[in-house]
């Protein structure tokens, strides 16, 4: 499985993603520079976390105009799997590949911590190795992770099983205290209609190695690595 990782000048989780796909999973992984106009031959595209172009304006607002983005949209429209993590999620919403917007955290502060999540949908190519409603722990690290979408559109996401992760308490409840950033309906990750684009604020690439405190993120990459795999 050939992974491609988009690199904007302010991307800073590019190496961490590559560490997981190349070093942990042993898959060929290519960095793709933002000034390119074409994607190389890849099977999965990752848009990593970071501050694409500094994000002084609005996270991801400039990145969507980047030379590579036409090729990204094209890849996604043809059904290629695209995983946007953190800043990647923000860019996907700015680019219109996913609905909604990521507002500033309710606390107005950057938050870096482990967060409990519930896998709301394991019927995706990103999450098929998780159990239905499985509780997992992944780190979050963002200033603008407060997902917003109007009520009607949220209802539509819910009806179509497009919410992939929700912030929950350790015991799996959507209590107010379990929502770290104020996201509407506790949404931590969503997919597009076709199911080939996933945007999520938590960082699965930071939970792929036991020595770093958790391994709940590795199955997301393994799901992509083994589209039909069982383990």
């Amino acid at each position: 499985m050939r992974f491609g990782i988009l690199v904007f000048p302010g991307s800073n989780c590019d190496f961490d993603c590559k560490y997981v796909t190349a070093d942990v999973l042993g898959e060929p992984t290519t960095f793709i520079w933002h000034r390119e106009k074409k994607l190389p031959e890849i099977d999965v595209l990752i848009i990593p976390g970071g501050f694409s172009y500094g994000d002084y304006l609005r996270a991801g607002a400039i990145a969507r105009f980047s030379p590579i983005m036409d090729a990204v949209v094209d890849f996604a429209e043809k059904g290629g799997p695209v995983l946007g993590i953190c800043n990647g999620f923000q860019i996907l919403t700015e680019a219109g590949l996913l609905p909604g917007a990521l507002l500033q955290n309710r606390s107005t502060k950057f938050i870096c911590q482990w967060s409990a999540l519930r896998v709301e949908s394991n019927q995706t190519r990103f999450t098929h190795l998780y159990q239905p409603d499985e509780l997992i722990d992944l780190p979050i690290a963002h200033m603008d992770g407060n997902y917003y979408l109007d009520a009607e559109a949220v209802a539509d996401l819910e009806k179509n099983d497009r919410i992939v992760f929700r912030y929950v308490s350790k015991t799996g409840e959507t209590t107010p205290a379990a929502n770290p950033n104020g996201s509407i309906r506790h949404i931590a990750g969503i997919r597009n209609k076709a199911g080939n684009v996933l945007g999520m604020m938590p960082h699965p690439e930071r939970a792929a190695d036991a020595v770093l405190g958790g391994i709940d993120g590795i199955r997301l990459f393994k799901s992509l690595q083994h589209p039909w795999g069982k383990s």
């Binding site: 190496f15 997981v20 938050i111 870096c112 911590q113 690290a141 960082h203 930071r206 190695d209």
Partner: peptide, 16 residues
């Protein structure tokens, strides 16, 4: 204080 700092990036943090 430290939850405002990204203390996990680079995938090396063993003791936070």
């Amino acid at each position: 204080v430290y939850q405002q700092y990204d203390h996990m990036i680079q995938n090396n943090t063993v003791i936070p």
